[in-house]
């Protein structure tokens, strides 16, 4: 079977599998949100400070919040089938648009953190596995355990203290210089400066996970028969390390990294708060606080879909790294 048709089969299988999961996510979150005290109109009225009972009832009728739960769920699902995620009373715009506005910021942050974490994590893991049991290994092991134990928001604040307040090298928050008229390369560089601290704070935890995981899977792979065979064939150590050991160690690593894609979007709430970064996590937090449940449902659904897509990508990657994987449905 060619790798293209295998990828297509994986995508198809994942798609079939994803529909009930996504539906479960929507129904579960919808019902959960009904338990929350107060709705968007309460919060809006509270903020306006001058709403009568009549105007509040009118607003509820306008946004369809006065209908019974079952009816609202059905109409939400019907809208969803048409790709309509509803309307946000708070922001006064369609949820789809709100999410599209915030998505690039979130994807940029999560994406760059994931890439940084994978590069640094695997590099550390390879180094530790190569020096297994020696001082380098021990020091780096403890260091990665420390990374693993540090709260991301705290390290974010400490990085601000060091690099923004004490040294003045990097901006302490925001996503670009306000009122900057820079374009082209200058604008990109400007944005990069704002991304460094959030990306580093978000990635430390994942660097630790990938370093520990790749260390252990590399050490495990080193003891396998095919590595001994490769060595017996007279292959160079570097060649063995990268072509045989690392390649096999990558399988558990990609599985875990795939699971993190969704978590990073959600988990970046605190980082987005610390750095005032305009992303989906922050939007979700504001939606909870403003009882803007259409927005929240949209985000939950969207990030769940992202998790499902990420898992599919991981399945395809496994097929590429290890051709024995994914050839038939039995292995799944």
């Amino acid at each position: 079977m060619t790798s293209v048709s295998r990828a297509a089969r994986t995508a198809w299988r994942t798609g079939l599998h994803a529909v009930p999961t996504a539906l479960g996510v929507v129904v579960l979150s919808f019902l959960l949100l009904q338990l929350a005290p107060g709705d968007a109109v309460d919060v809006l009225a509270g903020e306006a400070g001058s709403a009568t009972a009549e105007t509040m009832a009118e607003m509820r009728a306008h946004y369809g919040l006065d209908k019974p739960v079952g009816q609202r769920l059905v109409s939400y699902l019907a809208d969803l089938a048409h790709g309509n995620l509803g309307f946000s009373p708070r922001y006064n715009m369609p949820v789809t648009q709100l999410i599209w506005d915030r998505l690039p910021g979130s994807l940029m942050l999560a994406g760059s953190a994931l890439v940084l974490a994978l590069i640094v994590g695997v590099a550390l893991g390879v180094l530790m596995a190569a020096r297994e049991g020696k001082a380098t290994d021990r020091v780096l092991s403890v260091l990665s355990l420390i990374f693993y134990s540090v709260p991301a928001f705290w390290i974010g604040l400490m990085l601000i203290v060091l690099f923004s307040i004490k040294l003045g090298w990097l901006p302490s928050g925001g996503s670009q210089t306000i009122g900057s008229s820079a374009t082209g390369i200058a604008a990109v560089l400007d944005q990069l400066r704002y991304m460094i601290l959030p990306t580093v704070s978000l990635s430390l935890f994942y660097i630790a996970i990938y370093a520990r995981l790749s260390r252990i899977s590399m050490i495990e792979a080193k003891g396998q028969d095919y590595v001994r065979t490769a060595r017996a064939k007279g292959l160079g150590e570097t060649h063995i390390l990268f072509r045989h050991v690392l390649r096999n160690a990558l399988i558990p690593l990609t599985t875990v990294a795939g699971m993190h894609v969704g978590g990073m979007l959600g988990g970046s709430v605190v980082i987005e708060t610390v750095y005032g970064w305009p992303g989906l996590g922050r939007l979700a937090y504001e939606a909870v606080m403003g009882r803007d449940f259409a927005v929240l449902l949209g985000i939950l659904l969207f990030s769940s879909l992202l998790v499902i897509v990420a898992n599919a990508v991981v399945d395809v990657l496994h097929g590429i790294i290890d051709p024995r994987v994914g050839g038939n449905d039995a292995t799944k």
């Binding site: 999961t21 996510v25 579960l28 949100l33 978590g263 959600g266 979700a284 909870v288 939950l300 769940s304």
Partner: peptide, 14 residues
């Protein structure tokens, strides 16, 4: 599949 931290915020807010 639900994002952990968003879920946490939702439950605590409820």
């Amino acid at each position: 599949t639900l994002p952990n931290f968003v879920m946490l915020v939702v439950v605590v807010a409820i």
